[in-house]
């Protein structure tokens, strides 16, 4: 448990400003999810906190202490790397125990810890293998396990579940959540997965072009995205965004989530294009004001391409954005 504070952190690589004055406070024991498009600097932010990279300007505080010049090993954190970064010459067991060997943990205690973590991550049968003999998903679980054995104050996860299949992924998500509840470590978690973001995070931070654009609970971000980028980035399927002229607004864009459109009893007329069966629901594509809309619905509409269907927008859930600044205009 430790709190973390980024104070106007900037990072420049080869004259490119990757991070531009990022301010971010993470509470002790918090689970913060960091999302953003590829290349926006998520990994860089984690590497700065881990001490693997030095900020071009700004300060990082861990428990109120400025960690400038503090070596990675002395920052009391663990990290799961995007590329796994397992030690290829060591067995799974030695990989898991590496940090414990370094801090001279007694052998029996180490054995217990390794077994415990291996159990949770289903690695027990693989302990004597080398990383080269593991599948991608197994490697990823070893990488995850390596960060858990030493009970760090802070754990940084860089897309730790990206290579697992859906079933294993939801299981691991559950395990991570349980571990967080048990250890109360501060966790910072990078992901591209919407479900991981909303289920795991106490709060979600959205990073784009080097800045934190929005920070809040999943509900806050989902219901009140601060700008068009966040509106399009969070939520799946993606929010529909179209010019609001048909509602009588000038230079404003109108956003509505696929769930917030009803088919059948409205005044707006759209022309049906096609529908997809998604298992639990149908995804309907219809053209309205020259734009393709996505609408989710529990039943099929049973229409042919070109048929007119009436739409009803749930205006209480509507989002409005200034077309130039792209900022949210309704509260």
């Amino acid at each position: 448990m430790a709190n973390v504070e980024f104070q106007s952190i900037s990072k420049t690589f080869d004259q490119q400003n990757i991070l531009k004055s990022v301010d971010l406070k993470i509470k002790s024991g918090e689970f913060l999810v960091l999302v953003g498009p590829s290349g926006c600097g998520k990994s860089t932010l984690l590497r700065l906190l881990a001490g693997l990279e030095q900020p071009t300007s700004g300060e990082i505080l861990i428990d109120g202490r400025n960690v400038k010049g503090v070596q990675p090993k002395d920052r009391g954190l663990a990290m799961v790397f995007q590329s796994y970064a397992l030690y290829p010459h060591l067995t799974v067991k030695e990989n898991l125990g590496f940090a414990l060997t370094l801090n001279k943990t007694p052998a029996h205690e180490m054995e217990k810890k390794i077994q415990e973590v291996a159990e949770i991550l289903r690695l027990t049968k693989l302990l004597s293998r080398k990383p080269g003999q593991l599948s991608g998903g197994q490697r990823q679980r070893v990488a995850l396990g390596r960060s858990l054995v030493k009970n760090p104050k802070i754990i940084l996860f860089d897309e730790p579940l990206s290579n697992l299949d859906a079933a294993l992924r939801s299981r691991m998500r559950y395990e991570i959540k349980k571990i967080h509840q048990k250890t109360k470590s501060t966790m910072i978690y990078v992901t591209h997965d919407q479900t991981e973001a909303t289920t795991l995070g106490d709060r979600i931070a959205i990073l784009n072009s080097g800045k934190i654009i929005q920070l809040g609970t999943a509900q806050e971000i989902f219901n009140k995205p601060v700008n068009k980028f966040v509106a399009g980035f969070v939520g799946s399927p993606e929010m529909n965004i179209l010019p609001a002229e048909f509602l009588g607004h000038k230079n404003i864009d109108f956003g509505i989530r696929p769930d917030d459109i009803q088919i059948g009893d409205g005044t707006a007329q759209a022309s049906f294009e096609l529908e997809e069966y998604m298992g639990s629901h149908y995804m309907i594509y219809a053209r309205f004001q020259g734009q393709l809309l996505r609408i989710t619905r529990s039943q099929s509409v049973s229409k042919k391409t070109g048929d007119l269907i009436p739409l009803n927008f749930n205006m209480a859930k509507a989002h409005f954005f200034d077309r130039v600044s792209e900022l949210r205009t309704n509260s």
Binding site: R47, A50, G51, L52, Q71, P72, K73, L77, A78, M79, F81, A85, L86, Y87, F98, A99, L102, N103, R146, K150
Partner: peptide, 8 residues
Amino acid sequence: DAARVDGC
């Protein structure tokens, strides 16, 4: 990097 975070 992983080794440095692990304590090396």
